[in-house]
Simulated scan of single mutants.
Amino acid sequence: MNYSCPTCLSNKIIKNGSTHHKKQKYLCKECGRQFVELPQKKYISSEFKTLIDRLLLEKIPLAGIARALDVSYTWLQNYVNKKYEETPREIKVSEKQKGKSTIQCDELWSFVGKKENKIWSWLALDVKTREIVGVFLGDRSKKSAEKLWDSLPPVYRQCAVCYTDFWESYTGVIATKRHKAVDKKSRLTSHIERFNNTLRQRVSRLVRKTLSFSKKLENHIGAVWYFIHYYNSLKSVKN
């Protein structure tokens, strides 16, 4: 028998019954993998899935990933659905001591399904560490501003000075003495505005004019959180 195991490449292969389509099944005596010759379904290894996970962090639509990697779009969509569903919706940042800190907040718009259905990504960034320390996705109301504030770790809610634009929803949510509303010319919100650009460049469904927009709200939210966790993991290593 000239077959080799697709997992460990061993030639110690024996016949092992047949499928319900009458195709011969084989068993690897080295690793225990069962397989058929010329399978219709492609075996997706853990290494291959790791590659897909990395590509999800780049501005590549799912259809593009499916074409480049020669995988089923349906399989890829189901894989991404599960990954985004399992992505935590809580911020993870390096441990901070109580003391003076500065954060910048801003809102980034995108849409799900159609442009009339706008979704706003509310973000807060630590000026010193450059970590994203607060996230909420919703509308642009005061309630969403409150959700952003609630998403911040307690040390920021207690001590941080917060710079925002003049959007009215922030008023009353952040303590007056620590809320600084400024315009763009001040450059006191430049870091969070720069991150907004990064987010649009790396998450294809956030590009303003795109065919890669989200059709499902949960995936839209999951994609944003997925990139933010990755982004913060890089910042925590540097800090």
Rank of each mutant, 00 (worst) to 15 (best):
M1R: 10
C5F: 03
L9W: 08
S10Q: 12
S10C: 11
N11E: 08
K12V: 04
I13Y: 03
S18Q: 13
T19M: 06
T19D: 10
H20G: 03
K22D: 12
Q24H: 02
K25P: 00
L27H: 09
C28H: 02
C28K: 01
C28T: 03
E30R: 09
F35P: 01
L38H: 13
K41E: 15
K42C: 10
K42S: 11
K42P: 09
Y43M: 13
I44N: 02
E47G: 15
K49I: 08
T50D: 15
T50M: 13
D53T: 04
D53W: 00
L56S: 02
A63F: 10
G64L: 04
G64T: 14
G64P: 02
G64R: 10
A66F: 07
R67P: 01
A68N: 15
V71D: 05
V71M: 10
S72E: 15
T74W: 08
W75D: 13
N78E: 12
N78H: 14
Y79R: 11
Y79H: 14
K82R: 14
E86N: 15
T87H: 08
R89I: 07
E90Y: 06
E90K: 09
I91C: 01
V93H: 02
S94A: 12
K98L: 11
K98H: 11
G99K: 08
K100D: 15
C105T: 13
S110L: 04
E116F: 01
N117V: 08
S121G: 11
V127D: 07
R130H: 14
R130N: 14
E131Q: 10
E131N: 03
V135N: 00
F136R: 00
R140P: 03
R140T: 03
R140F: 04
S141I: 06
S141P: 04
K143L: 10
S144L: 04
S144K: 03
K147P: 01
L148M: 09
D150R: 10
L152W: 01
V161A: 06
Y163C: 02
Y163N: 04
D165F: 05
W167S: 04
Y170E: 02
T171Y: 07
G172H: 06
G172M: 06
A175S: 12
T176K: 14
R178W: 04
K180Y: 05
K180Q: 12
A181V: 01
K184F: 05
R187A: 10
R187K: 15
T189Q: 02
I192P: 00
E193L: 07
R194E: 13
F195V: 14
N196K: 08
T198C: 13
T198M: 11
L199W: 03
R200L: 10
Q201I: 02
V203Q: 01
S212R: 05
S212E: 04
F213A: 04
N219D: 15
G222T: 03
A223P: 00
F227S: 01
I228P: 00
Y231K: 09
K235L: 09
S236I: 15
V237H: 08
K238H: 13
K238Y: 11
K238E: 15
N239H: 06
